[in-house]
Amino acid sequence: MNIIVCIKQVPETTEVKINPETNTLIREGVKSIINPFDAYAIEEGVRLKEKFGAKATVITMGPPQAEAVLREAISLGIDDGILLSDRAFAGSDTWATSYALSAAIKKIGAFDLIVCGKQASDGDTAQVGPGISAHLDIPAVTYVKKIEEINPVRNTKAIIGEDKISNGVKDNFARVERMTEAGYEIIEVSLPALITVVKEINTPRLPSLKGMMRAKQAKIIHWKASDIEVELNFVGLAGSPTQVVKIFTPAPRVGGQMLKGETQEIVDRLVGLLKSDIP
């Protein structure tokens, strides 16, 4: 089994500063870390590796210093790290980023599962994961909180009943629990697939000293735009369909107003207040 974990290096602070001229993040002077949600993706990748003897590869796209997060992932038990880095990628939006990452994943070759964090703490879009699956034309399940089974020997009747088998669920599949606002869904997905994970899925481990030593020695694979099959006009700032017009901090919401008194009295006042708010 081959697992690919996609991660992103992000600024540590949650109060990111924005350059008002370029509408991009100011990274200077801010410590960089693994996107906190990606830590759960790494942990899940390592657990699958330990359970199934899978090979786990971690990939990131970013500046050269993003190598640090790949080494950190290796210190936690991931086998290999690939850094996708090129000036041509600079300014990529979520579409262009997922396009470039999917091209790199094609170059890696065979894989069974791609694991991503649910979203990055800096951009908060939650688009790159599903974007990769779209570019690769494989199914995606977002907000996964548990992998119940993966690629098991199939007990068809017990699981879904015969009618659904003919609906195209293949032998290689994973059954996962997906968080929704109301509860969770159990979804079977054919492999290869992409999942994005939420923090409920596991508790990430701390690195071990031997892992850290191994990570220091590990050879990180560097790929440039010319190493993967991408059309250059679809990556970078120019290849990005999204244009950030303005980034600003919204004014904080003011607290609500509590009405007290008898029910009828409260209802009357509430209706009055609501009416007065309508222009």
Partner: peptide, 19 residues
Amino acid sequence: TDEQKMIQELARKIAEEKI
């Protein structure tokens, strides 16, 4: 040494987060 810095970093992390 690099190894000693790793030990320091790791022990500090455990101390802060777990202990």
